[in-house]
């Protein structure tokens, strides 16, 4: 009982914080809070909330039995590899291949 309520309260706070940061940023017409700060703040709040919910709702904690934890950690590893790897690879692919006309207007094709 208690763990759900604690988890809920923490999650609500973290959600509100993340929204508040973005709201300040948007309402001030991007004047308040630099982009990068906002980016890391939102990511950080999300990560903390992730841990909070895993801990309080899903009972994922280091003391859990290895049957639960090992596949969980493996999944985490694979998610990081797949998402991180894909971004790195795709970024690299589009950077190392050049595309023409930097900054020139749209080539609306009069070609055909």
């Amino acid at each position: 009982m208690k763990k759900y309520l604690t988890g809920f309260v923490f999650s609500v706070i973290l959600t509100l914080l993340a929204f508040w940061v973005v709201w300040v940023h948007v309402a001030s017409n991007h004047a308040y809070l630099p982009h990068t700060f906002m980016l890391w703040a939102v990511v950080a709040f999300a990560l903390v909330q992730l841990v909070v919910q895993l801990y309080f709702f899903l009972d994922i904690r280091p003391s859990r039995d290895s049957h639960t934890m090992v596949p969980f950690l493996l999944a985490l590893f694979i998610i990081v590899v797949v998402v991180g790897g894909s971004l790195w690879i795709m970024q690299n692919l589009s950077h190392s291949q050049t595309t023409p006309f930097r900054g020139t207007p749209s080539p609306q094709n009069d070609l055909y």
Binding site: V22, Q53, L58
Partner: peptide, 24 residues
């Protein structure tokens, strides 16, 4: 309940990455 909690966790990632971070 386990399944439903999992959906809420995915939603954290969605509202943060898809929506909130779109302003950056």
């Amino acid at each position: 309940a386990l399944f439903w909690h999992f959906l809420d966790i995915v939603w954290i990632a969605i509202f943060s990455i898809v929506y909130l971070l779109s302003t950056t």
